[in-house]
Amino acid sequence: MLKWALFFLVISIIAGLFGFGGISSAAAGMAKILFFIAIVLFVVFLVVALLAGRAITR
């Protein structure tokens, strides 16, 4: 998912350099959304892994 966020970020930068403001802002928005989804998934899986680790050690 972070690959897609980076991809949309690069597309946004390139579109911005060529003057395509609408495409640039849309790609930046997609990159931002994908980045935050990746962060949320990371935190959820981190908490699940920590709780599963405690359950195994008990």
Results as ranks from 00 to 15, higher is better:
A28I: 03
F36D: 05
F20T: 03
V44P: 07
I11C: 15
A31Q: 05
L6G: 00
V10G: 06
I37E: 12
I56S: 01
V40F: 15
V43W: 08
L51Q: 06
F35M: 10
M1F: 04
L2M: 09
V43M: 07
V47S: 05
F45E: 11
K3D: 14
G21Y: 15
V44R: 11
K3Q: 04
G22L: 11
F35K: 10
F20N: 11
I13G: 02
A31L: 11
K3G: 02
I14A: 06
I11E: 15
F45H: 08
R54E: 03
L46F: 06
V48G: 03
G21T: 14
A28R: 07
T57Y: 00
A27R: 01
F45L: 06
A27L: 04
F45N: 10
L17E: 02
A28Y: 10
A38P: 02
I13K: 05
A5Y: 04
V43H: 02
F36H: 08
F18V: 15
L9Q: 11
M30N: 11
R54I: 04
T57S: 08
I39P: 01
G16V: 08
L9E: 13
L51K: 09
L17K: 06
A52Q: 07
L34G: 02
I13F: 03
A5G: 11
F42Q: 08
R54F: 03
F20M: 13
I23Q: 09
A52C: 03
A26S: 13
F8T: 00
F35D: 01
A27N: 12
L46C: 03
A38T: 02
K32Q: 08
F36G: 04
I39M: 10
L46T: 12
A38Y: 13
W4K: 08
V43I: 14
V40E: 08
L51W: 02
A38G: 13
K3E: 11
V48Y: 09
I33K: 08
A52E: 10
L51C: 07
V47K: 05
A55D: 09
F20D: 13
A15E: 15
R58K: 14
L46S: 10
G21F: 15
A5K: 06
S12K: 01
A5Q: 08
M1L: 09
I39G: 01
I33H: 04
K32S: 15
G22I: 15
F35E: 01
V40Y: 13
